[in-house]
């Protein structure tokens, strides 16, 4: 049986050659604890970019 996260990728020819995020990767996008860590990391990166730009 096709994994749920892979279903859409068979719907159009155009989609068949693209990267498919794994179920784990998709879960982590909405995992609050992991996203909190990423929130800190992204903010730091953005602040570095902002400071390099001024």
């Amino acid at each position: 049986m096709a994994k749920k996260e892979e279903e859409n990728f068979a719907k159009k020819d155009q989609f068949t050659l693209t990267m498919i995020p794994s179920g784990f990767a998709r879960k982590m996008r909405t995992c609050v604890i992991w996203q909190f860590i990423r929130f800190i990391a992204i903010n730091i990166k953005m602040l570095v970019v902002v400071s390099k730009s001024h």
Binding site: E5, F9, K12, Q14, F15, M19, I20, P21
Partner: peptide, 15 residues
């Protein structure tokens, strides 16, 4: 390009 194509496919949005 790879990321965008993946995202569009995942959401079933042809381009």
């Amino acid at each position: 390009k790879l990321f965008a194509e993946s995202l569009f496919s995942e959401r079933d949005v042809p381009w």
